[in-house]
Design a protein around this nucleic acid. Structure first.
Length: 476
RNA sequence: CGGGGCGUAGCGCAGCCCGGUCAGCGCGCCUGCUUUGGGAGCAGGAAGCCGGAGGUUCAAAUCCUCUCGCCCCGACCA
């Protein structure tokens, strides 16, 4: 294994795959397009998952599990849905050595199987709302894959809710995109634009799709989470009706929403640098790593017992700490190793620190390294982690603002695409116009932000006056 | 599916043009000693039917044919 990773400036894509592998987040599997999530990467995912799971439960949702195999005919019940997913389905045709009467699709998403069950479960307005989430794997046979960002099989959560009214289902879809925004900003330290997808970009089968869009380190956009208002599309496709308070039969209103292991990719590309990962303290598997330094057995035991007093105190404050006791590699190696893995704080503890009751503290996010007293460190460690979390967020927001440009013409869009970044513009074009733009520039309308200033201006493409502003960018 | 690149030790690669002491290098791994505050040093050692099949030849990692697989770029997409 060579040292370090390909610099971002030389080849961002290569940098990304280098970091994923050298930080031991994931590895390629024997099957094309699939990845093995390694323990360190999985620990990161578990932190994401556990945090979100608590947020979902706090907002009234419960977890369930639906099977992975879905009758092929189910997918065909919603016209747009099958059109959207057909090309990327993995289909099981044989089981138990025999050809199946009806092929089974490995779920690319679970709307259909879930709605087939909701038909059984929903009869009355008293059965609503139904607020179910599931953590699962899904399979989409993508042409091109990239570790975490787009793999054939990926892990995600999908919420599927059923409501008695349009208003309530819309509120749910909006509430969940706000949950995603909070998670992205407060935990991932990743600022996001929240808004609506255009007709072209929305989910297959949705009435409206809401999205959070983040800017990666190469100034490209990453769709990081989506929430869909499904209207009555799936209820009609699966004939899910309920009797309302007036004894009338009505189709159920629905929402669905999801985030995936792609968020790990988002984390890497939001914060990483040429030394590797930089993890936000709230999600880092280890928040503090301690590297012991000693010359002999006597020094070793003195250093380790001194360290024990530090870890005990940190753990008492719910700080996740790890002591790197490997005897087989040098301290210098460990410094680089943990920088690659993005641990927010590193302590170097050697004999002279033991003697003076000091610690040497290094910050991963800004590279600062200093000596301070053990007590000073212990009394400020938790606060320092909060500070880092906050500064990482502000840093990324500033980066996004510096790379977001207001444009008034198609040429200006091309300039932005050329230099990288988000383009904000008035937009009154058609779906066809949008496709044309994407074909020519590779940039797409990432979203119609919820936050609109209400001003009127000329559409950068059609020249017509409009109040609608959109954000365009090249996306992953 | 289109374009490009590549399969030689666990990983990264050289060798291929011009067949013949070419089975080689770096890292990693193993053993020992010395080391340990920014990727340790020295000495010794283990490890590869050269992606697979067929062919040409006295002789194939090297030339020819077929085949399998992977990576990158594009269309598609969380």
């Amino acid at each position: 294994m060579s040292k370090g990773v390909t610099p971002q400036s030389r080849d961002y894509a290569k940098w990304y795959t280098d970091v994923v592998q050298k930080a031991e987040l994931a590895d390629y599997s024997p099957v094309k397009g699939c990845m093995v999530i390694r323990p360190y990467g999985y620990a990161l995912w578990e932190n994401i998952k556990n945090t979100l799971d608590a947020m979902f439960k706090a907002s009234g949702h419960v977890n369930a599990y639906f099977p992975m195999l879905i009758p092929e005919s189910f997918l065909k019940k919603e016209a747009e849905h099958i059109e959207g997913f057909a090309p990327e389905l993995a289909v099981v045709t044989h089981g138990g050595g025999k050809k199946l009467e009806e092929p089974l699709v490995i779920r690319p998403t679970s709307e259909t199987i879930i709605w087939s069950m909701y038909k059984k479960w929903i009869n009355s307005y008293r059965d609503l709302p139904l607020l179910i989430n599931q953590w699962a794997n899904v399979v989409r046979w993508e042409m091109r894959t990239r570790l975490f960002l787009r793999t054939t099989e990926f892990l995600w959560q999908e919420g599927h809710t059923a409501h008695a009214t349009e208003k309530e289902a819309l509120e749910e879809a909006n509430k969940m995109i706000a949950v995603y925004r909070d998670f992205a900003e407060q935990y991932m330290a990743m600022p996001v634009l929240v808004g609506k997808k255009t007709e072209n970009e929305k989910f297959a089968g949705a009435v409206d799709t809401y999205t959070i869009e983040a800017m990666m380190g190469d100034k490209r956009a990453l769709q990081s989470g989506t929430s869909h208002y499904l209207g009555q599309n799936f209820a009609k496709a699966f004939d899910v009706t309920f009797q309302n308070e007036n004894n009338e039969l009505e189709y159920v209103y629905a929402s669905s929403w999801g985030v995936s292991t792609r968020l790990v990719g988002a984390l890497i590309m939001s914060h990483g640098d040429d030394k590797g990962l930089i993890l936000p303290p709230r999600l880092a598997p280890y928040q503090v790593v301690i590297v012991p330094i000693y010359r002999d057995e006597e020094g070793r035991s003195a250093v380790l017992s001194y360290i024990a007093t530090i870890t005990e105190s940190l753990e008492k404050n719910a700080v996740r700490v790890h002591v790197d006791q490997r005897d087989t590699v040098s301290p210098g190696f460990k410094f680089n190793d943990w920088e690659m893995k993005g641990v927010p704080l590193r302590l170097e503890i050697g004999p002279r620190d033991v003697e003076k009751e000091d610690v040497v503290l290094a910050r991963r996010d800004n590279g600062e390294k200093k000596t301070l007293s053990k007590n000073a460190f212990l009394s400020t460690a938790a606060a320092l982690l909060d500070t880092i979390q906050q500064e990482m967020f502000l840093n990324r927001r500033k980066f996004r603002e510096q790379n977001t440009f207001d444009i008034g013409s198609y040429d200006e869009l091309k300039d932005v695409v050329e230099k990288g970044g988000f383009a904000r513009a008035y937009w009154d074009g058609s779906g066809e116009d949008e496709k044309q733009i994407q074909e020519e520039t590779k940039a797409s309308i990432r979203c119609i932000p919820f936050e609109q200033d209400g001003s009127e201006g000329k559409c950068f493409y059609t020249g017509r006056m409009t109040k609608q502003q959109v954000v365009l960018a090249k996306a992953y």
